[in-house]
Design a protein around this nucleic acid. Structure first.
Length: 424
RNA sequence: GGAGGGAUGGCUGAGUGGUUGAAAGCAUCGGUCUUGAAAACCGACAUGCCGAAAGGCAUCGGGGGUUCGAAUCCCUCUCCCUCCGCCA
C-alpha cells in the first residue's frame, strides 16, 4: 500500500512510476479526489465534535451544581444527529478510498529497466555452463516415467490435472532437496526456520498483497473464509503483522511449505509434466530490514538463492525484471532461471523481491529506529528455491545415456545412500 | 461441541457513566549526585488522523447500540484461559 501522504504530496513521482508499470492511472485520480473529499468532511465533523465535547463537559459541571440542563441537552442532541450522519458519510468515503488504495501497485524502483513485458527484462548475469551431451537429452517427463518416480495419471484421477504425485526415490529426492535447502539457509545464511499454517485468512492475504487483486488465482475455502497459501511469503511475512518488532533488525526467516495456485487460463506446452502445477513445494526466504539497508539485502538474498543452485552444480542466469513485469507489490525483482537441457529452455525457480514498505504498510509491521520512533520496516522475499523446476533441471542435467540420473554429492547426506536414480 | 472467566499504553496492573488519554509499578530516555558505576532523587515517556500553526478529532481486542457525555451500560464478533466432551 502506498502512503496516502506520498500520493498527495508527490503525485507526479507516483504517477510516473505507475505509468512505467502500465498501471491504471484513473485509479490514482480517484484516490486523489476521495482524499480531498475525506479531508473536507473530516474538518466539519471534527469542528462539530469539538463543540459537543465542550458542551457535554459544561452539562456535567452544571448538573453538579444542581442546575436544570434539559434545554441545552435537547439542543446538543440535534447536533449529535448531524454528527452521526456526517460520520456515516465519512466512513463511506474512507472505505472507498481504502479499497482504491489497496488496488494501486507499488511504485517501481527508479533504477530498474523500463518496459511493458518480459522482453524488456535485463539479463544481469549467467553462471555456470550448459553440459555437453553425447546423446539426445530427454525431457523430465520421459525420464521420470522410466525412473518410476512420478505418477501423473493416478494423481489426475484423485485430484485432477496439475497435482503431482511423487513415488519412491522421487518422493525421497523431493524431501532431500527441501532439507538440503533449509539446512543451507539456517546454518549458512542466518535464517530462522518456521513451519507455518498452510491456510490463512483474508487479512493476511491482503497484508502481502495477494488480495484483493489475485483472488481468482487462489484456492478459497468458502465455508471458513480461509485461503490456501500460494507461497510461504504470506504466512511468513504475516508473522509480524500488527506488531512493532521488538528485536534487532534485520530478521531472516525461512520456511518450507506447499504452495497452491489455481492459475486459471494456463494451457499447452507450459503445462507438460510438472512444469506448471496447482500444488508445488517451495522453500522461501523472508527478510524484515531497516529501510536504508533493503537494496543491499536484496543482493544478498539473491546470493542466498544462488548458493542453493551452485551447491547442486547447476547452470543458471539472473534476470532483472523490468517495470512492467514485476509483481504488484514489488519495487524491484530478480528472477533466477535454471537451464533445462530437455526443454532447451530456462526455467524460473526463484523470484527475489524488495517490497520496500509496501507490504509493511498493508500488514502494519513496524520497528523502532535509533530515536525510538516507530517506522515501517522494509520486507523482502525470495524463493530458495521452488521444487518442481529444480527437480526438472536436476533430472535433465544429470541424466545418463541409459536413462539413469546421477545425484549431486550435496544431496548425499539426505538420500540415505542413494547416489543415482535408476530406471525400473 | 457444552459451561464459565478474560482482553486496558513496551510490560504488569487499577479503574462500573462527567477534565480518565487513562492511577501505580516495571522498563526506557534525560538530569542531579558519584573518580566511575549502582542506588537514591528529579523530570520525560502511547498511537493515528486533520491542520501552516495554535490546536483539534479519534483510539482502553473488532464492529454496532443506549446517552448531552461510554474504558465503564447493552448487543455482536474475534482471540486467549479453565473445566467437560470428542479426537490424530
Amino acid at each position: 500500500m502506498l502512503d496516502i501522504k506520498r500520493i498527495r504530496e508527490k503525485t507526479d513521482e507516483v504517477r510516473e512510476g505507475l505509468r512505467r508499470r502500465g498501471a491504471d492511472l484513473a485509479l490514482l485520480d480517484a484516490v486523489l479526489e476521495l482524499d480531498r473529499q475525506r479531508r473536507a468532511l473530516l474538518g466539519s465533523a471534527e469542528e462539530m465534535k469539538n463543540r459537543r465535547n465542550a458542551t457535554s463537559k459544561e452539562i456535567g459541571a452544571a448538573r453538579k451544581r444542581g442546575e436544570d440542563t434539559a434545554a441545552i441537552q435537547a439542543e446538543i442532541r440535534t447536533l449529535g444527529d448531524r454528527i452521526t450522519a456526517l460520520d456515516e458519510q465519512i466512513r463511506g468515503v474512507e472505505a472507498e478510498l481504502h479499497k482504491a488504495v489497496l488496488c494501486i501497485p507499488n511504485v517501481p524502483c527508479a533504477t530498474i529497466p523500463t518496459g511493458s513485458d518480459a522482453s524488456a527484462n535485463r539479463v544481469a548475469r549467467v553462471e555456470g555452463q550448459s553440459r555437453e551431451f553425447a546423446f539426445q537429452p530427454k525431457d523430465h517427463v520421459a525420464l521420470a516415467e522410466k525412473l518410476g518416480i512420478l505418477d501423473l495419471p493416478r494423481a489426475a484421477r484423485m485430484s485432477g490435472s496439475g497435482f503431482p504425485l511423487l513415488v519412491g526415490a522421487g518422493a525421497k529426492l523431493q524431501r532431500a532437496l527441501i532439507q538440503y535447502m533449509l539446512d543451507l539457509h539456517t546454518t549458512c545464511h542466518g535464517y530462522t526456520e518456521l513451519l507455518p499454517p498452510f491456510v490463512v485468512n483474508s487479512d493476511a492475504m491482503c497484508g502481502t498483497g495477494q488480495l484483493p487483486k489475485m483472488a481468482e488465482d487462489m484456492y478459497h475455502c468458502e465455508k471458513d473464509d480461509l485461503w490456501l497459501i500460494p507461497t510461504a511469503e504470506v504466512p511468513v511475512t504475516n508473522y509480524f503483522r500488527e506488531e512493532i518488532i521488538d528485536r534487532p533488525l534485520p530478521i531472516f526467516l525461512t520456511a518450507y511449505t506447499p504452495c497452491f495456485r489455481r492459475e486459471a487460463g494456463s494451457a499447452g506446452k507450459e503445462t507438460r509434466g510438472i512444469l506448471r502445477v496447482h500444488q508445488f513445494d517451495k522453500v522461501e526466504m523472508v527478510k524484515f530490514v531497516a529501510p536504508e539497508t533493503s537494496y543491499a539485502e536484496l543482493e544478498k538474498l539473491v546470493g542466498n538463492a544462488e548458493d542453493v543452485l551452485q551447491g547442486l552444480g547447476l547452470h543458471y542466469r539472473i534476470l532483472e525484471l523490468c517495470s512492467g513485469d514485476i509483481s504488484f507489490a514489488a519495487a524491484k525483482c530478480y528472477d533466477i532461471e535454471l537451464w533445462a537441457p530437455g526443454q532447451q529452455g530456462w526455467l524460473e525457480v526463484s523470484s527475489c523481491s524488495n517490497f520496500e514498505d509496501f507490504q509493511a504498510r498493508r500488514a502494519n509491521i513496524r520497528y523502532r529506529d535509533a530515536e525510538g520512533k516507530t517506522r515501517f520496516v522494509h520486507t523482502l522475499n525470495g524463493s530458495g528455491v521452488a521444487l518442481p523446476r529444480l527437480m526438472i533441471a536436476l533430472l535433465e542435467n544429470y541424466q545418463q545415456a541409459d536413462g539413469s540420473v546421477i545425484l549431486p554429492p550435496a544431496l548425499a547426506p539426505y538420500m540415505g545412500g542413494i547416489d543415482r536414480l535408476v530406471p525400473k
